[in-house]
Amino acid sequence: MTLTLSEPLFNALLAVVKILFVWAMTLAALLPNLIWAERRVSGLIQDRPGPNRVGPLGLFQAVADVLKLMMKEDVVPLYVDKVLFTLAPLITLTPALVTFAVIPFGSSIPITWNGAVRDVPLVIADVNVGILYIFALTSLAVYGIVLAGWSSNDKYSLLGGVRASAQIISYELAMGFSAAGVFIAAGSLRLPAVVEWQHAHLWNVVPQFLGFVVFAVAIFAETNRIPFDLSEAEAELVAGYHTEYSSFRFAMFFMGEYANLIAASAVVTTLYFGGWSLPGVAFTGLWGGLASIAVFAVKTAAFIFLFLWVRWTLPRFRYDQLMELGWKVFLPLSFFHLIAVAAFVAASGR
């Protein structure tokens, strides 16, 4: 049977395949393994084995955990705002998953269609405002936390929500300004263009090291990881914004945190570490395309490991210290960086 498809339908089908691939990668492959990795890495750092009983090397631990959480009673306290309480975990999880839409996760794969060979770029949506899309979505994620804190009707949760909003405001600007340097250098807001520029020249982390540092720290703040996990701060706020959550609602926050982590690592890889590219290697053809996906995955994984490593090493900031750092150190630094990059690009006449 010959399948004939019209051009738009074919494109739509391609997009669906790509979405399914990316989600399968993040939700089914990366996310459970990340939960496992977090616990094994913490074990490694803390001189203990970590979970090693469920499945080979304890790999099925995450599955067991999720199953356990799903079977727990879903307790909704009496005084919560039920609508927002239900909505909040969804709001946290969704932006992380849709961020992947604009991230190029590989070079391209040649596909023969209607007798012609065409290169299919490995990005779900190559929109020309890619980075704005990412910023818009990642800022949305904090609403989930703030709403969870508010709707729980609990003082500790409220404090957690307030902390989260203060934190996101303090770091969003510095993050935006430091990332702007990348786009000035690449001359485009498209993420594939950023990767191609780095492929052609050199990874942004070298010329824009300052921007990378600011961006990476802001990412830590954005994903609520130690040393910036103030909204959770289990020893101070008794798990903060998700104190009242149990069962699968809690699992959604949990998954949201890790999905955010993966998304953030993917963004850093794309912006500063050349995305799927390797210097001097041209990824062409089917195998080249697949290899580029692998390169991207390895780079992302390396960054995820950094996240884990930092979490199990550093203490947590205090609320006011974190804001001080954001406003008084990182914001001026990112300004300086942006001006320096812009001046350099203008002077070199590109």
């Binding site: 913490s42 803390q46 130690i226 040393p227 020893a235 090493t313 550093l314 203490p315 947590r316």
Partner: peptide, 16 residues
């Protein structure tokens, strides 16, 4: 105390 300020790993070093 260090767990309370977020530095979790020290707890295991001390407890060993």
């Amino acid at each position: 105390n260090l767990v309370d300020i977020g530095a979790l790993t020290n707890f295991w070093y001390a407890f060993q």
